[in-house]
């Protein structure tokens, strides 16, 4: 169920590479855990991120979670639609619910990320 063309993290972010750029969002597992998302605190375009640095926060009614950047890079666009309709993350987490687009600083870091099959295996482990 997790698309093969995405990378994943143990913090439940996904990353899609497009040339030197990448789109980042949170996984279907993450949105289910959070419940109805009511607000997304988006970063400024131009923000420079280290890998594992908090890039946004996602709020449900009674919780708030940081979204960490899977790799280092610079924010070049944010999903403005989320400020009006944050629940699009619940409806389409791996597509319309993307959060930011970054310019990747070092493609080597992609090797540290999980493939779909590994992520699914990781989730199975969490369920026990």
């Amino acid at each position: 169920m997790y698309p093969e063309n995405l990378y994943y993290t143990k913090d439940h972010e996904w990353l899609k590479v497009e040339g030197d750029e990448a789109i980042i969002g949170i996984t279907d597992f993450a949105q289910k855990q959070l419940g109805d998302i009511i607000y997304v605190d988006l970063p400024q375009v131009g923000k420079v991120l280290e890998a594992h640095q908090a890039l946004a926060s996602v709020e449900s009614v009674k919780s708030v979670s940081d979204v960490f950047s899977p790799v280092s890079g610079e924010v070049i666009a944010v999903n403005e639609a989320l400020s009006q309709t944050p629940d699009v993350i619940n409806k389409d987490p791996h597509g319309e619910g993307w959060i930011v687009r970054i310019r990747i600083k070092n493609k080597e870091e992609l090797n540290n990320l999980l493939k779909a099959a590994d992520y699914e295996k990781y989730l199975e482990g969490l369920e026990h």
Partner: peptide, 9 residues
Amino acid sequence: LSTREQHIR
């Protein structure tokens, strides 16, 4: 708007 507050954040 309790997510601003300390019992959550």
